[in-house]
Nucleic acid binder design. Structure first.
Length: 479
RNA sequence: GGUCUCGUCGUCUAGUGGUCUAGGACGUCUGGUUCUCAUCCAGAAAAUCGCGGGUUCGACUCCCGCCGAGAUCACCA
């Protein structure tokens, strides 16, 4: 049987770290089995609808490399894929339930329901609407909410991640199927759609676990088979055991893109938060994830979200992209991350800079702070030079003298490549009798006035002869 | 409060009765690579497997109880 999975977000804003995994896992499962992945937009709550949210969701998925076989943009045999355009379908299914006596129109005003609820809370007994079920119910028509008529009984079911689960009859209740405004609730709509669209694996977050018996009751009343249930454990806040949500400052996935996280690292990190293949592998390409993913190795407990590991993974991926796909490939991803001073620099020059600095990057936006001196003369900071731990033993005149010797040596060079420069630097070392720590620190700081920089010979090669000598001269005369 | 779920190093995890004196990774610390930072390499510290009972020759692994944490109880999804 073909495997069909779906990701069904509601367009109320961006996709955040806490819920993007319910897009990744269905995607991996579908691709692994040559199945189908459906994107369905659950826009039945008109009050929370956010303009542009659908585009944001599509954009996020595309960035991560998650494509869908049916859904917005691409269409498909079960269109439309926006729930707001499927009203007739829900109403048809609702009428079946009315006909079989499993749903009723409920004219009870909200204030009265609230009073029931309060009454129960005061008595400290669980509030179940079925205990207050109205005796005379009108014919259902738009404008009146439609409720499910629950039959209390115990349910047990199998969950691909959590194992065998069960719950008693006390959770079964008359939940709303169709709202007053005619739109279905999630509780009803997702069941109808998953069935109509042939979804075989329903993967969703653990917050739906306690509603399962009610869903099972609806499947039963509708006389349709429930898909396989795959409950994804929560991603937890880094500072506690609570579910990570927008209110806790869960960042949007695209925010990480803007911060310089590469999509491969994001995918890798999220896929491995709560899943592993049992080996000691840490770095996975998307294709490897597709190949190795398995439902029974998804963790049943929640996992803390820890940005440190994401950052490590990102560094690994930046290096992997550079060494496996080349400098151009990595450069293509760095467009928005260069300092302003780099605006007029050529691509060729920036690729050179990237090539000597990429292995220091934890994320792409580090370029902004780490490469300034390649594009403009650094601000003279003699304190930094004089107080350096290797240089403070030397007097200013000694420093000046050393710089002058270096200038003379470098000026006489007929070629300007890394090897030649290293040789010259080594000769300078024996000529002056200084330690590398002293001589190299002096030149490095004089050239960059940065807390760190790539290897000295590489830095000088990229900077070029003129700039190198000019900067050394500036410092020598300032001392 | 009712219902349900979860519980191995700080964090992500391996572990399906003996090979566990509990393995790996991140992070932390130390050392190495002609300066710095990073990479890379080597090494260290770090879990009495939530607690208490049982079953067993033997339990992180099975059973029971407890404790702790979380989720959920909307005309939101």
């Amino acid at each position: 049987m073909e495997i069909v999975t779906r990701f069904a977000p509601s367009p109320t804003g961006y996709i955040h770290i806490g819920n993007v995994r319910s897009a990744i896992y269905p995607y991996l499962l579908a691709r692994q089995n040559n199945g189908k992945m459906i994107l369905r937009i659950e826009d039945t709550d008109r009050a929370r609808y956010v303009d542009g949210a659908t585009e944001l969701i599509e954009d996020t998925l595309e960035w991560l490399g998650i494509n869908w076989d049916e859904g917005p943009i691409v269409g498909g045999p079960h269109a439309p894929y926006f729930q707001s355009e499927r009203m007739d379908i829900y109403h048809d299914w609702a009428r079946k339930l009315i006909a079989s006596g499993r749903a009723y129109a409920d004219p009870t005003p909200p204030e009265k329901i609230e009073a029931y609820r309060k009454e129960c809370n005061d008595k400290k007994i669980p509030f179940l609407y079925r205990n207050f079920r109205p005796t005379n119910t009108p014919e259902w028509e738009p404008g009146i909410p439609l409720r499910f008529k629950a039959e209390p009984k115990a349910y047990s079911w199998h969950d691909e991640v959590m194992g065998d689960l069960s719950a008693g009859p006390e959770v079964l209740d008359d939940i709303i199927l169709i709202k007053k405004d005619g739109y279905p609730t999630y509780n009803f709509a997702h069941i109808v759609d998953d069935y109509e669209m042939g979804v075989t694996h329903l993967m969703r977050g653990a917050e739906y676990l306690s509603s399962m018996p009610n869903y099972l009751a609806i499947y039963e009343a509708l006389d349709i088979k429930a898909p396989k249930i795959v409950t994804l454990p929560h991603i937890l806040r880094s500072d506690g055991r609570k579910k990570l949500g927008k209110r806790d400052g869960a960042k949007s996935v695209t925010e990480y893109r803007e911060d310089g996280i590469v999509a491969e690292a994001m995918m890798n990190y999220l896929a491995c938060l709560g899943w592993n293949d049992g080996t000691e592998q840490e770095i996975y390409t998307k294709d490897e994830l597709i190949e190795k993913f398995s439902l029974n190795r998804i963790q049943s407990s929640g996992a803390r979200y820890d940005e440190t590991k994401l950052l490590w993974l990102n560094g690994q991926w930046i290096r992997k992209i550079f060494t496996e796909q080349g400098a151009d490939a990595l450069y293509a991803r760095t467009q928005n991350f260069w300092p302003e001073s780099a605006a007029s620099a050529t691509d060729e020059y920036k690729i050179k800079v990237l090539s000597i600095i990429y292995d220091r990057l934890k994320n792409l936006s580090d370029l902004r702070d780490m490469t300034g001196y390649f594009f403009e003369n650094p601000k003279l900071d003699l304190d930094m030079l004089v107080n350096n731990k290797f240089l403070k033993k030397l007097s200013e005149s000694e420093l000046e003298d050393l710089l002058k010797q270096a200038i003379m040596k470098l000026d006489g060079l007929s070629s300007w490549d890394a090897d030649t420069l290293q040789t010259a630097l080594n000769e300078l070392l024996s000529a002056t009798g200084k330690k590398p720590a002293e001589l190299f620190s002096l030149i490095r700081i004089a050239l960059s006035f940065a807390p760190f920089s790539p290897a000295l010979n590489l830095t000088m090669e990229v900077l070029g002869k003129d700039t190198t000598l000019a900067r050394l001269n500036t410092v020598a005369s300032a001392l």
